[in-house]
Design a binder for these strands. Structure first.
Lengths: 64, 64
DNA sequence: ACAAAATGACAACAATAGTTTACATTTTGT
DNA sequence: ACAAAATGTAAACTATTGTTGTCATTTTGT
């Protein structure tokens, strides 16, 4: 399955779900669902999230 | 918007759309649509495509 | 030139991503 | 302890991703 480090990275950057949501242009709830692992975002959103954390998509999202 | 190098990479690896589709587990038509730039795949599929070309998501898909 | 393989394109559809609204629960700061 | 901020969750919904089937067109190999 697909897993991700969004929650850890967000903590490291001291951002709330709302902060991140605003930064990448989606809703707070969607960030929550992604963190929960409920679904795989589009690659466009994944790229924006990785950029928000100054890292790569592979570093944030990975197949396990 | 989102652009990608799937067509070039696929040529470099001498794969047909069907080859790549089979390798990443989707239909041939979907590869065609992605190459055409019609839509952004899920990050899961993007990861698989990048892996098929032995490279990163950022190298294959980029915001322009 | 010819046949086979590869690609383009479209429609109708199924599955999943992502939205808004709303409310409950948990965490944080003073 | 209290209020405010942050998070969890759910329903109903819209938008987009991805499917299968079909046929036309283009490319490739002999």
């Amino acid at each position: 399955m697909l897993e991700n480090k969004v929650r850890e990275l967000r903590a490291r950057f001291k951002m709330t779900q709302s902060d991140l949501a605003k930064k990448v242009g989606i809703s707070r709830q969607t960030i929550g669902l992604i963190e929960k692992g409920d679904y795989a975002p589009s690659v466009l959103l994944a790229l924006k999230i990785a950029q928000a954390f100054e890292t790569t998509v592979e570093d944030v999202f990975y197949i396990k």
